[in-house]
Design a protein around this nucleic acid. Structure first.
Length: 572
RNA sequence: CGGGGUGUAGCGCAGCCUGGUAGCGCGCUUGCUUUGGGAGCAAGAUGUCGCGUGUUCAAAUCACGCCACCCCGACCA
């Protein structure tokens, strides 16, 4: 591609709308332009990147035996009513009426349509298994679109759905997809990790997320360097401390703590480490006859895990208690609450808290805390559960090593749906015995457009994007200095351009009539991985200058060897 | 949806407090010079000051309403 015939639309200054680095760089490098909140035009440079991601995904899906299909973006409401998601999905599902006042949606995913296809086309076990996928525009009317393409409302997703006669066969395909996703993200040139995940609202049993690692990622991943263990922090189990609880060493006493409401403030006032304090969180469960309050305890430096809490019996529909509820039940404002003398409020202590002795907690009266508190002696032994997020240094749940915490951006998710949709939509096949059975289903998603943003979050520097070669808009750039003067530079540039194109290299010839600084800056900003500079000076010596995007300094190379050099770099 | 903030040229911003014919930088156009890291000089073009209503002789500026967008919290690829 010649830059003069392309649209290189770079920005020196950053539009004020962008806060996160990938969003800023995507705007500056001319990959995208905003059209509405969470809705973006993909400019030619950006679309090249998106297509390269798509093609790798498509190749690997095909290689894995999946078959491409294309389902409508606009789907009739009837199917969604049939699956129950018309009511269950909420306002993120974009709905509208056509001219006949019939209800339609824009697909956020396509379980309904694919299940409808399956029940019509897959009537016999002889047609199973089958895995159908599409790479398609999705729309989710997010509460708050943000971070540019990372959490847009319109985005491109690869969504695949597999149909099986047995659970065993679903599990086989699930492992197949796990391996396929691993190959895809490896080929994309990204640092990533597959983690065990919560199944969330989609339901089903097994589930893994694939995260691109980046410090700016929204998700926290717990993993053990000593083993294969990796899980979303939402899910990772916090084991009970290995050492038993120490016997009481202090007497329980009330200490004045005026105005000190947080564990941090109380620990600082008393000169104690935060690990000696206990944080009290009041949850409410609405029931007939009024809300029932529960007191949950985690160590002062730990955080409550709401997903774990919601899995406790009776707490699946919890909410945080209001200040008024707390005052009337505890006789104290929030900030001074504790588990001692509670007259009947159920207490659930985290495993770590249950193993603490001589700890500090609220006294259930304003401006006072209790110190030297001990289970058994000062208050009854509590109900114990795992209700906190793991932190770095916790023992790995598989018993091997200590956990570390990584930040990640979720770009893929695989689920075993089982028969959730096939039963709801009466999608069944006849087995060998002539019996009608609901399909065992799996579903598998990859956020194609999000991958572009995640790749940039993971790979950038002060000059701009540093794309992995497999998804860069161009694999290499030829930057001729003085192209418009004609002469040997122009001639050599044209010749090299043809040579590289003939070798199958996706190269940009920057033939724009700009000063060298502009050309260099743009090539860096767009993240083109390899750059070849041609100048009169170099050509006189038979050399061109090569620089990799991550290299600190350029190298002079024989002009003749540039093609072989790039081929070697690109196949590495 | 709750909380905070911003809307002035394609982009980044000043002007608003204290009302009086709209500015700066970048970018864009033309010419000359320049040509190895976002050039210099000169001449230009580009604005319903987010929208509406009100106050006023006069509104970018004051008041009220609306809209859009951004940031922080609860969800997801």
């Amino acid at each position: 591609m010649r830059a003069s015939q392309f649209l290189v639309s770079t920005l020196k200054e950053v539009p004020a709308e962008a806060e996160v680095v990938s969003h800023r760089l995507m705007l500056r490098a001319g990959l995208i332009r905003r059209l509405a909140a969470g809705v973006y035009t993909w400019l030619p440079t950006g679309l090249r990147v998106q297509r390269k991601v798509e093609n790798i995904v498509r190749e690997e899906m095909n290689r894995a035996g999946a078959v491409e299909i294309s389902m409508p973006v606009v789907q009739p409401a009837e199917l969604w009513q049939e699956s129950g998601r018309w009511n269950a999905y909420g306002p993120e599902l974009l709905r509208f009426k056509d001219r006949h006042e019939r209800d339609f949606v824009i697909q956020p995913t396509s379980e309904e349509v694919i299940t409808d296809i399956a029940r019509a086309e897959l009537k016999s076990y002889r047609k199973l298994p089958l895995h159908l996928y599409q790479i398609q525009t999705k729309f989710r009317d997010e509460r708050r679109p943000r971070f540019g393409i990372m959490r847009g409302r319109e985005f491109v997703m690869k969504d695949g759905y597999s149909f099986h006669a047995t659970y065993e066969d679903l599990q086989r395909e699930y492992r197949n997809m796990y391996d396929t996703y691993t190959r895809i993200f490896t080929r994309l040139g990204l640092k990533f990790r597959a983690v065990a995940a919560d199944t969330g609202a989609i339901g089903g049993t097994g589930s893994h997320e694939f995260h691109v690692l980046a410090d700016s990622g929204e998700d926290a991943i717990a993993w053990s360097p000593q083993s294969q263990y990796a899980a979303n922090v939402e899910l990772a189990e916090a084991l009970a401390p290995a050492s038993p609880r120490k016997p009481p060493a202090e007497a329980m006493r009330k200490v004045p703590t005026p105005g000190k409401k947080t564990c941090e403030e109380v620990a600082a006032l008393l000169g104690l480490p935060l690990e000696r304090t206990v944080k009290s969180v009041v949850l409410a469960v609405d029931a007939e006859g009024g809300a029932v309050l529960h007191l949950l305890l985690v160590r002062g430096d730990h955080a409550l895990n709401e997903i774990k809490v919601s899995k406790l019996p009776g707490l699946d529909k919890f909410r945080f208690a209001t200040e008024a509820e707390i005052r009337s039940r505890f006789g104290s404002p929030a900030g001074y609450l504790g588990p001692v003398d509670l007259n009947g409020v159920p207490v659930i202590a985290d495993r770590t808290v249950a193993a603490m002795s001589d700890f500090v907690c609220g006294a259930n009266e304003p401006d006072a805390h209790l110190a030297g508190v001990n289970w058994g002696r000062d208050l009854p032994e509590p109900q114990v559960a795992d209700i906190r997020n793991v932190v770095a240094g916790d023992p790995s749940p598989d018993g091997k090593g200590q956990l570390e915490i990584l930040r990640g951006i979720e770009v893929g998710h695989i689920f075993q749906l089982r028969t959730k949709y096939s039963e709801a939509m009466k999608a069944a096949f006849l087995n060998e015995n002539g019996e009608s059975k609901p399909f065992e289903m799996g579903c598998y998603g990859i956020g194609v457009t999000r991958i572009v943003a995640a790749a940039i979050e993971q790979n950038h520097d002060e000059k701009g994007i540093v794309f992995p070669a497999p998804i860069a808009p161009f694999e290499a750039a030829i930057v001729p200095i003085g192209y418009h003067k004609g002469g040997p530079v122009r001639q050599a540039a044209e010749q090299l351009y043809e040579t590289l194109r003939a070798a199958g290299i996706d190269v940009l010839l920057d033939d724009r009539d700009e000063r060298p600084g502009v050309l260099f800056a743009d090539a860096d900003l767009m993240g083109i991985p390899h750059r070849v500079v041609l100048s009169e000076r170099g050509l006189a010596a038979g050399t061109a200058e090569y620089k990799g995007r991550r290299d600190a300094k350029p190298d002079d190379r024989a002009l003749e060897g540039i093609r072989a050099l790039l081929e070697a770099k690109l196949s590495a």
